[in-house]
């Protein structure tokens, strides 16, 4: 009886030993410009994020055991691609801010750090107090700017250009999604006041989406659902009245389980400025979309908290 177990166990052990010699490469490229933040904030980010989101990866001996090492190497590679605090200088100031808000939201939703990582590296866990420190830091970056002349100017420019606009062909996103002009007459399912990036948004749903909200069938949303989200600058007067400024973009999420299988059943597209310039260099831009939506995996990857009307 013992023999039956001995042979497979021996085989597995040999395979595991052999695997140790096949090693992925995890190097630390130079730090071109590290994130600058108050000491307390930085310490939390370094502890919780830097192993995968910087060029200062600090692997422990147990990270380097195969087959775990493959996964670790993959996490570092993918992590750096999505967010790298060591190349902070390569990002425009607005993008740095955007990345930080996104990162803190990922932490708050518990999507980051990855559970399997904190299971082994328990010191990387982000406590409620840590999160409060990070949120305070970000909240401190929000400043009111009444009568912002640059924003007013941007709106005026768009208003003047409006009459001259004539569109022959509908723009197409790199993943093949064509701009859907009809969303403007769809019903609204929510609106959002984004103080993190000084925009305000209206979220529209097509008929299938609105019906799904009415019937509470939104987890998952039915195939054929389309959500559209348009965003504008916020223009604030001295009395705290905020109105829509220049048009920033419109984003679509189209539900089709088969067609968009690789991005969790959702087709993503974004068209920027009144010119409706498609976002993304190539079809791979959707990785960025789904990564940001990942914390919402329990809500079918949708952030919007819809209103019935």
């Amino acid at each position: 009886m013992k023999k039956y177990f001995l042979i497979p166990a021996l085989a597995v052990t040999i395979i595991l030993i052999c695997l140790q010699f096949i090693r992925p490469k995890v190097d630390n490229p130079p730090v071109t410009g590290d994130l600058q933040a108050p000491e307390q904030v930085k310490a939390i980010l370094v502890r919780a994020c830097y192993d995968c989101h910087s060029n200062q990866t600090n692997l422990r001996w147990y990270d380097k055991i195969q087959p775990v090492y493959w996964q670790v190497a993959n996490h570092v590679r993918e992590g750096r691609k999505g967010l790298n605090f060591s190349n902070w200088d390569k990002l425009a100031p607005a993008d740095r801010k955007g990345k930080l808000w996104e990162a803190i939201n990922q932490l708050e939703e518990g999507a980051m750090p990855i559970k399997s990582y904190t299971f082994v590296h328990s010191n990387a866990k982000v406590s409620k107090q840590d999160l409060a420190v990070l949120k305070n830091y970000l909240a401190g970056m929000v400043h009111d700017m009444p009568n912002d002349t640059s924003k007013i100017h941007a709106l005026d420019k768009q208003l003047q250009a409006k009459a001259a606009q004539e569109r022959q062909k509908l723009p197409e996103s790199p993943n093949g999604i064509t701009y859907l002009p009809d969303y403007k007459s769809w019903q609204v399912i929510s609106t959002s006041d984004r103080f993190d990036n000084e925009t305000m948004r209206v979220i529209y749903g097509n008929e299938i989406a609105v019906k799904a909200v009415k019937e509470h069938h939104i987890n998952p949303w039915p195939n054929g659902t389309i959500l559209a989200k348009s965003a504008w600058d916020k223009i604030e007067d001295t009395n705290g009245n905020v109105t829509t400024g220049a048009f920033k973009q419109v984003e679509f999420m189209i539900k089709d389980n088969e067609k968009y299988k690789s991005t969790k059943g959702w087709g993503f597209a974004r068209f920027k400025t009144p010119k409706l310039t498609p976002y993304g260099k190539d079809a791979m831009f959707t990785t960025e979309c789904i990564n940001c939506h990942k914390p919402m995996h329990e809500n079918d990857f949708v952030f919007t908290f819809p209103i019935k009307n």
């Binding site: 929510s190 509470h216 939104i218 987890n219 908290f305 819809p306 009307n309």
Partner: peptide, 25 residues
């Protein structure tokens, strides 16, 4: 196995809780 347990613990949210009831008309 610990990782598998973490994954299996995740459950989809109840659709009723995903509707913004107090803002609904």
């Amino acid at each position: 196995s610990a990782f598998a347990i973490f994954i299996s613990c995740k459950q989809a949210s109840n659709p009723d809780q995903l509707i913004n009831q107090k803002a609904s008309l």
